[in-house]
Design a protein around this nucleic acid. Sequence first.
DNA 1: CTATTTCATTGACTTTTGTCAATACTATTT
DNA 2: AAATAGTATTGACAAAAGTCAATGAAATAG
Lengths: 192, 192
Amino acid sequence: MYELFFQNFNKKIPLTREEELQVKRYLTPKKLRKKQYLLQEGDICKSIAFIEKGALKAYSIDESGNERIIQFGMEGWVISDLYSFITGEPATYNIDAIEDAELVLIGKQAHEELLQQLPKYETFTRLNITGAYIAMQKRLTSILSSSLEERYANFIALYPDIVQRVPQHMIASYMGLTPETLSRVRQKMTRK
Amino acid sequence: MYELFFQNFNKKIPLTREEELQVKRYLTPKKLRKKQYLLQEGDICKSIAFIEKGALKAYSIDESGNERIIQFGMEGWVISDLYSFITGEPATYNIDAIEDAELVLIGKQAHEELLQQLPKYETFTRLNITGAYIAMQKRLTSILSSSLEERYANFIALYPDIVQRVPQHMIASYMGLTPETLSRVRQKMTRK
DNA sequence: CTATTTCATTGACTTTTGTCAATACTATTT
DNA sequence: AAATAGTATTGACAAAAGTCAATGAAATAG
């Protein structure tokens, strides 16, 4: 249990056996079935979820009732409504499972105590958020300056596993497109 | 000198006088005139810049040669090509001054030593990047799910100072629009 | 195994946004 | 003061993306 979590942690910052046990005391496992919610808009986000297995999505609902996927989460990724988690304000995103999933939860209090007690945990957190920031900035840059073909090709190159495991209309939503438009982009690309 | 920098730092994490002096030794002041580069695409980004005064923009150039503004930086903000700074790879962004600016630079080595030496600096860094992440996520959500009118109204509400100080075509670029389209969005809004 | 929901594609049409060109106004430079 | 560069707006038209509807295929549930 928590194999992938500690594998990731140790890859960034090696922990002693004792430190692992110390961290482990703050973790809670959670399983989700496909389509189950981890978080619903309006609720307070009380934990950060590390994904051991499965796939999730974080999304908001626009005025026409369409899902707008803000983030996918696959094995080894972290998913959360960080805004709600940090501020204690109601969540603006929904998070649910695209596939049956196994999660490792870190509650808010656990998170704060770990930050206090274990400098390596703060470093781990800092590195994670920095990586997430850089990735999101690349995504934003690509939205602002690339053609749809380039963006989709880029998505495939970056996340081949997501392309395999997730329906295309969700990728369209992640890209800010309708499913029809993504279908046409693909058609155009395969004709080349 | 460095007033705003330490004001911000202390607001997040109070420093003792000694700690302030310790941090100060790692800082370098820098002035930029309007239109001067802080960083050019292809160079290695060797420092993070805290803005004491003035306005800057970080942008990439798309295939048609247009600026795509990925970030504005005003007083109290931090600006950098974090990807290049962290990895040591060539920068993908240009950063230049929209107005004459006064900066506080933290070089890469200074950054790393401070992280080692002063836990409060790591916490400061973590809080900064977390805030930047949340802000960028909101921007992305707004791009994915809101109309242009809503996005522009939101921008005005969030950054009234930028609207005052920066030409509209730059705001258009930041929003991923042509200047003409933003002009028409504004026209539509004022007619209401 | 069958029925049903989900998914991807395609076509016809509409709406949105971009492109190009012209104009006018402002700020800056010489 | 005149010349220049930068800025915002508007119009006519083109291109891109969305909408709606129909179809068929694949996945899932009963």
